[in-house]
């Protein structure tokens, strides 16, 4: 009996200390520790933030950033609720979240060009959107990829019933190679490069050539913008500085990325360097060239939202000034 009580006592103590430690940990002096939910695995695509961490751009702004890879899109509600400080998320995800009254705000754009791309093997003869008629297309059947394919089909005047959309999750490449689908929806800076590095000849239809939709960027919660604008300002500044530096020093940027993406095998290095450079090509569009890097065109937001509403992906629209806050980037 005594042992039993002692055992429970020790367990409670351990849990208590653990809990107290996690709660107490961030309350130290020095730079303010914040968390960014990356919503993906460690990847060279996050180069601006890796550069900012490595070269002290965050420290200059008085912040210390923890990259958190545990959450996927579930990070958005947490950001809205103030449980997580920032996240990297797609513009369409922000629009969808807002349509469900989840108060998140987009602060700066990483992908100024909308990155989804429709990819087919060269031998399939699919070269332009019209060629997709009657074909099987594999994609994760929600989110950005779904928006992209709906927009492309619609623009090409193809009814959705004229193609077969197959949910292949994130196994697009095997699905395409094994011939289970004729084309896939991926990202211009990812699947095409991966396929080419495996020796496949491909055709790709880049969505950004057809629409000015909004891609991934830095987001936070409305609460944070209201209660802690200085912190938001610091994060946005460091992000933009990181982007600029990365664009000017691609080689060094890649070397920095390698420290933050430790799981890369040697034979992936060539491919990942290509992923980085083609990602960088998506960071700028005409609008951001004119108004400065990280800026996002409110018209693109209007258009994205209009299309998403039209395709039934959201059931109500949100005023653009609630979705997008460019105050911190000016």
């Amino acid at each position: 009996m005594k042992k039993w009580v002692l055992g429970i006592g020790v367990l409670v103590l351990i849990i208590g200390i653990g809990g107290a430690y996690t709660i107490a940990a961030p309350a130290s002096n020095g730079p303010k520790r914040i968390t960014v939910a990356m919503t993906y695995i460690p990847s060279v695509q996050f180069a601006p933030w890796y550069v900012a961490a490595e070269l002290g751009f965050f420290r200059e702004q008085g912040i210390d950033v923890n990259f958190d890879y545990r959450m996927d899109i579930d990070a958005l509600p947490l950001v809205a609720d103030g449980k997580v400080d920032f996240a990297i998320a797609g513009g369409d995800q922000v629009i969808t979240a807002r349509s469900h009254d989840i108060p998140v705000v987009y602060l700066a754009t990483l992908y100024a060009k909308f990155p989804p791309s429709i990819i087919a093997l060269a031998k399939s003869g699919i070269e332009k959107p019209q060629d997709l008629k009657g074909k099987k297309i594999g994609l994760p059947l929600y989110g950005t990829s779904l928006l992209a394919i709906k927009a492309v089909l619609n623009k090409a005047g193809i009814a959705e019933s004229d193609v077969e959309l197959i949910d292949v999750g994130y196994t697009q490449i095997p699905a395409l190679i094994s011939g289970k689908v004729d084309a896939i929806v991926g990202f211009a800076n990812n699947e095409p490069l991966s396929l080419q590095s495996q020796g496949f000849r491909i055709h790709q239809i880049d969505a950004w050539q057809y629409f000015p939709l909004v891609g991934h960027g830095l987001i936070t919660g409305e609460k944070m913008v209201r209660n802690n604008p200085k912190l938001v300002q610091a994060m946005v500044r460091a992000t933009v500085k990181g982007m600029r530096y990365a664009l000017e020093h691609p080689e060094e940027t890649y070397r920095i990325c390698l420290k933050y993406v430790p799981d890369l095998s040697k034979d992936q290095h060539g491919l990942q360097q290509k992923v980085l450079s083609s990602s960088m090509a998506l960071w700028q569009n005409d609008y951001s060239k004119r108004y400065g890097i990280g800026n996002s065109d409110p018209k693109a937001w209007e258009e994205s939202q209009r299309l998403m509403h039209k395709y039934g992906l959201i059931d109500k629209e949100t005023p653009v000034h609630q979705l997008l806050n460019l105050k911190f980037i000016k």
Partner: peptide, 20 residues
Amino acid sequence: AGSGRGLGYLVNAARGSFDT
């Protein structure tokens, strides 16, 4: 892991559209 129907797909799709 990949499907367009079923309750598992529904969980995934609802999650993707923040429909808690």
